[in-house]
Design a protein around this nucleic acid. Structure first.
Length: 822
RNA sequence: GCCGGUAUGGCGGAAUUGGCAGACGCGCGCGACUCAAAAUCGCGAGGGAAACCGUGGGGGUUCAAGUCCCUCUACCGGCACCA
């Protein structure tokens, strides 16, 4: 009696079974190689969307395959549980952030289980739990001990909508990464992590990450923004020879300097203008600049606006008077916050000099005879290479050489030298928000800034607070605020800022290796055992943010002796988005497909199969209803196939002759094993693995009833095993159906037999002058010479040559024979 | 402006090492089964009447190019008054 495929019924049954059997627990067995498979953990926003389904389906296929392949696999899950939406929910619905968050976690955990993801829940972490954030605080203090956490007053990014400061990485095109509000500047004292100390290592070590997509490495390179040049120190005679240093990538043009520009916020500006006629005007300009947002200020089309300060500097080498200006296009926090102006050899300086009628000195003579020295600075700047002129002792030198020569000379004179600048800024880590890890710092009137001793952690986040969305409730929580100084025992108050949630997520993958540890964030032994993450799967949106921060954390903790590796993620897979009708799913567009409804309708196996089959993982995936139907149809097809032969394996094999059909099926089965193993295990092209499985199914369907039953049984059995990582529930059910004992997921992954792949005969292509003219079946394994001889002797070949002169014959065994005639 | 990526039938995509372009699936058409439909099973198809032409355009290397080289275009993404 045929039973229809009923995913709703069988999926729940097997999920319960796996749970009871502990099938998904990390099976520690040091005789096996380890594999750490990790997908980016979700923010518990409420429910999982299709993007989540995709990332966890991908990760689960890999984890399941590696387990069957004989690895001890670590495949954990957790929750990036601190963050603003919980506070917003508190304002909107009056829910307590903790309660709201944990309810969401429960719901989403259930969704993940319904997808059949093989997670070891015994290692689950939630960043908002005191058991976790205690160690986040511990690590903060470690950064402090290492001299990598510090407090400074600075013009920082401020999101008015989120009422908090932001790191540079969290400002995307001048807008807040979370809410898209325009980011403004605020002068505040804040906590920073010294990621700039690691800029060079973060950059060069990208070359040691061949398992990362080129795209992500390039994005990080761009973000770090290394720039090599020189610092050059000018003096200001009227300010008692006070020094001002500029950064330039073109020290070779030093003799062409005709002015200097400081950023409006530059600390020297007030001194320069004090008591001058220009004072009022410049001050007003500076105030105006401070108000302008970064987008308007730094956009390429913005007009370059500057003002003369009335002050002059003394040129570092010539001693000439150089007028000092302030201008909107010079940024305080890049380089030294001041630049030298060389209009003859820089486009931007040229435009500025033309606008304000500043002198233009040519100091490089073009090699190209078409460019006349007299014309440089008339219509355009000359930015190419050439020979030094008007540059004293450096005249006649190629300008590339002069870069080093001038820098060396400056260094000898104590006026600068070669240097490297990075675009990367220190990571602003404090946030004026409630739902985050409290920064473990105490302020004492007598002792100053005092870290909370590590043995007093955690600094617990109070839950009895009123959240109005306007101000950080910690600032008015009397119990939280008032404490005693750990040093002197006197009255003191706590830091009320919390940490950027990106700190929480910068080390969670380490906690999984030892999530129950009560003494340390993790032991060196466990970290070294499981790390690095062998495959990390997540969205491209974290190419800079989370992935850069995590690399930074790993390097710092490595340097602190906490483990021996210094990159967290050996290999990175960035999955594309899930689209519908060509655009990202969104409520406003009304094109959201609910994972719950899909699982309800077709079962998790169909959803997984479709997601993996519709596109390779890196590409965007367009959700189509007909495609899902197709995947469902395929599973039904497999189900009927196995069911109709379920007795075959149970009742023992009936072996007939090894006819051609049997040989071919045997070959197809072994080929499928080879292909699926490579595609899932190495190439991560799940779509082609699935098409190979489909081909096997098609072959099994057309297999003659009179052919060898043992070969058929072998094909069916392997079909189920190959399908197991992709569609785990149906595979388990069919495994049982054919009378096998134990879980299919505990089976050893099959190995293909290379002998079985060898064909007796092969079809080769006959080309004339590179064009396909005919096909021919020949014995396999012919040498080049024999193949050529054999083919040329055939009537077909003689007819094709048609009496023309054979100039050349190229024979590729197993593929083709190309006859070049003339 | 600099850097990275992508471009293949009606659609998603395959071709891993330079060797039959279009596997597999969706959609479509035809047939079988059925009173009929659905489901299922089977068959068919890049374009063109054909010679031939076909992997964004143009050029090149090669016996042979989706694949290698040069060049251009379009789209996606990163960085950007960065000194």
């Amino acid at each position: 009696m045929a039973m229809p495929y009923n995913p709703q019924q069988l999926e729940g049954k097997w999920q319960k079974f796996w749970n009871e059997q502990g099938t998904n627990k990390t099976a520690e067995d040091s005789s096996k190689p380890k594999f750490y498979c990790l997908e980016q953990f979700p923010y518990p926003s409420g429910r999982l969307h299709m993007g989540h389904m995709r990332v966890y389906s991908i990760g689960d296929v890999i984890a399941r395959l590696k387990r069957m392949n004989g690895y001890q696999v670590l495949h954990p899950m957790g929750w990036d549980a601190f963050g603003l939406p919980a506070e917003n929910a508190a304002v909107k619905f009056g829910a307590q952030p903790a309660k709201w968050t944990y309810e969401n976690i429960d719901f989403m955990k259930n969704q993940l289980n319904r997808l059949g993801v093989s997670i070891d829940w015994s290692r689950e972490v939630a960043t908002c739990s005191p058991d976790y954030y205690k160690w986040t605080q511990w690590l903060f203090l470690t950064f402090l001990e290492q001299g990598l956490a510090y407090r400074k007053r600075a013009f920082v990014n401020w999101c008015p909508e989120c009422s908090t400061v932001l790191a540079n990485e969290q400002v995307i095109d001048g807008l807040c990464w979370r809410c898209d509000s325009e980011v403004t500047k605020k002068d505040l004292e804040q906590w920073f992590f010294k990621i700039t100390d690691y800029a060079e290592r973060l950059l060069t070590d990208l070359d040691n990450l061949p398992g990362w997509p080129e795209k992500v490495r390039t994005m990080q390179k761009n973000w770090i923004g290394k720039s090599e040049g020189a610092n050059i120190t000018f003096t200001i005679p009227e300010l008692d020879n006070e020094e001002v240093t500029v950064f330039t990538t073109r020290p070779d043009t030093l003799f062409g300097v005709s002015y200097m520009v400081l950023a409006p916020e530059h600390p020297l500006v007030p001194k320069l203008i004090a008591g001058k006629a220009e004072e009022a005007k410049v001050l007003a300009f500076v105030e105006e600049m401070k108000k302008e947002s970064d987008i308007t200020r730094t956009s390429t089309d913005a007009e370059k606006v500057g003002l003369f300060t009335g002050a002059y500097a003394k040129h570092a080498l010539t001693g000439e008077q150089v007028p000092i200006w302030v201008a909107n296009y010079v940024l305080l926090d890049y380089g030294t916050g001041s630049v030298m102006g060389v209009p003859a050899h820089d486009e931007r300086d040229f435009a500025f000099a033309k606008k304000y009628d500043l002198p233009i000195h040519v100091v490089i003579n073009p090699e190209d005879a078409d460019v006349l020295v007299e014309e440089i600075g008339v219509d355009a700047a000359f930015t190419e290479d050439g020979t030094m002129i008007n540059s004293g002792q450096f005249d006649g030198m190629p300008n590339r050489e002069a870069i080093k020569a001038i820098a060396d000379h400056l260094e000898k004179e104590g006026k600068g030298g070669l240097t490297t600048t990075y675009r990367l800024r220190d990571w602003l880590v404090s946030r004026q928000r409630y739902w985050g890890t409290p920064i473990p710092i105490i302020y004492c009137d007598d002792c100053g800034v005092v870290p909370v001793p590590k043995d007093q952690l955690p600094v617990t986040l109070p839950e009895d607070v009123v959240i109005d969305g306007k101000r950080n409730p910690l600032t008015s929580s009397e119990d939280f605020l008032h404490t005693t100084c750990p040093t002197c025992g006197g009255k003191a108050r706590r830091e009320t800022d919390t940490m950027d949630t990106f700190i929480d997520s910068s080390w969670y993958y380490l906690r999984y290796t030892d999530s129950q540890n009560k003494e340390m964030p993790f032991s060196k032994e466990n970290a070294d055992k499981w790390m690095q993450v062998d495959e990390y799967i997540g969205g491209i949106e974290h190419a800079i943010l989370h992935l850069l921060y995590s690399r930074f954390f790993t390097k710092v903790l490595h340097d602190a002796g906490m483990f021996s590796f210094d990159e967290p993620f050996r290999s990175l897979l960035t999955q594309g988005m899930v689209l519908k009708d060509g655009t990202k799913m969104s409520k406003s567009k009304g094109n959201v497909v609910s994972p719950d409804e899909m699982i309800e309708k077709y079962g998790a196996d169909t959803v997984r199969l479709f997601i993996l089959f519709a596109a390779p993982p890196e590409r965007d995936l367009d959700w189509t209803d007909t495609g899902v139907e197709g995947s469902f149809r395929f599973l039904n097809r497999v189900w009927r196939l196995v069911e109709s032969h379920s007795d075959l394996i149970k009742t023992g094999q009936v072996v007939n002759a090894q006819d051609d059909a049997a040989k071919e099926l045997n070959r197809t089965t072994h080929y499928a094993i080879k292909k699926v193993t490579e595609d899932i295990g190495e190439r991560y092209t799940f779509n082609t693995a699935i098409s190979t499985i489909m081909e096997l199914v098609n072959k099994l369907y057309t297999y003659p009833e009179t052919s060898d039953r043992g070969t058929l049984a072998f094909g069916l059995e392997n079909l189920i095993v190959l399908l197991a990582p992709i569609a785990p529930h149906i595979a388990e059910e069919m495994w049982q159906m054919i009378g096998k004992s134990g879980s299919v997921h505990n089976q050893e992954w099959p190995q293909f037999d290379p002998q079985a792949l060898v064909l007796d005969e092969v079809e080769i292509v006959i080309q004339i002058n590179g064009k396909v003219r005919d096909k021919m079946v020949v014995a396999n394994g012919l040498s080049k010479e024999d193949l050529e001889k054999h083919v040329l002797a055939t009537e077909k070949a003689i007819a094709l040559i048609d009496g023309k002169t054979v100039r050349k014959v190229i024979a590729v065994p197993g593929k083709l024979v190309n006859i070049v005639v003339g």
